[in-house]
């Protein structure tokens, strides 16, 4: 009996030691294993990545208050980053809401409470990653391009066409808008009437729309969507500069990212080309030679 008890005692000691040891091994081994190598775009005000990972309590309150609902929580694939918030601009970009509710909601200061405005955020930096497809560089209008792409895609048109139409109408002159309303027999132009057109558009109407768009005044302008949609466009984070190249028969302009860019990602989301010509490098800080790199890359 006594022998049995000591044996049991011994086993219990061993299992206890094994479990405690296992936890210690996990703790030590996890540090190199669970460090995620790829940086993600964090909500505005996020501290430097290492400090952010240690500060975030993984409660998800930033996600709850996010008005455009673009914040997601990371899974186990991001190691220590599990449960931390991140944003994929192509799915939905941060629009730098007034007052930055996500920053206010953060209970730990992982999203730094010192910033109060979108232009103070430091999420990353936009770069013109695919200058060859950039419509501004080609001098092509974005709505004309989007209508062409939509015709090719054979996808259900209602949602994208609604977006295109509302964009188009907002840029029409008064005379052009009259022509548009006459063609579709509209009393007034509003959201519901536009989506009604988009839902039941015929092939003939679509072709008319294409021709009409190509003849409008704004079709002559090249794409400026990255600057137009930028939430802090007044800060001029993107300027369109004349491109200096050897065989410059045409006047080419190129969007150049400036220091004021905070990397919110709206330009990446809104860029008409697919994949987007302008993308965000998460957590990248501005340095003086980025201006050059932006032109070259």
């Amino acid at each position: 009996m006594k022998k049995d008890l000591t044996r049991r005692f011994f086993f219990k000691k061993t299992t206890t030691a094994v479990i405690a040891g296992g936890a210690a091994v996990y703790g030590v081994a996890s540090v190199p294993l669970l460090k995620s190598s790829e940086l993600q775009l964090r909500p505005p005000g996020a501290l430097a990545e290492d400090l952010f990972l240690s500060s975030c309590i993984k409660c998800g309150q930033c996600l709850q208050v996010c008005p455009p609902q673009v914040i997601e929580l990371a899974g186990i694939s991001s190691g220590f980053g599990i449960g931390t918030p991140f944003i994929v601009p192509q799915k939905g970009a941060c629009i730098l809401c007034k007052g930055l509710p996500c920053v206010l909601a953060c209970p730990t200061g992982a999203l730094d409470h010192h910033i109060s405005e979108g232009k103070e955020a430091d999420m990353g930096l936009a770069v013109l990653s695919k200058p060859d497809t950039c419509l501004a560089r080609k001098g092509q209008n974005d709505i004309v391009f989007e209508l062409q792409e939509l015709e090719k895609s054979k996808m259900p048109v209602q949602v994208p066409l609604t977006n295109i139409l509302s964009k188009l109408i907002s840029r029409l002159t008064v005379d052009e808008e009259k022509i548009f309303t006459q063609e579709f027999n509209l009393d007034s132009v509003n959201k519901s009437s536009i989506s009604a057109i988009a839902a039941a558009i015929s092939e003939a109407q679509f072709n008319w729309l294409k021709q009409f768009t190509a003849q409008t005044k704004q079709a002559e302008e090249g794409c400026r969507i990255c600057l137009k949609t930028c939430p802090i466009s007044s800060e001029q984070p993107i300027v369109f500069q004349a491109e200096s190249s050897a065989d410059s028969k045409e006047d080419k302009v190129i969007p150049v990212v400036q220091r004021t860019c905070v990397g919110c990602g709206v330009c990446e989301e809104e860029c008409p080309t697919s994949p987007p010509s302008i993308t965000i490098i998460p957590r990248k800080k501005w340095s003086s030679n980025d201006l050059q790199q932006g032109v070259q890359s």
Partner: peptide, 30 residues
Amino acid sequence: HVFNGNLKYYFFALFLVLSLLSGYTIFEVI
């Protein structure tokens, strides 16, 4: 099967020390 009921105190201390040393909230992963 039973274990020592004090293990949770060791875990508590262990993971706090690990947080301090590594700079990550290691336990929050699991």
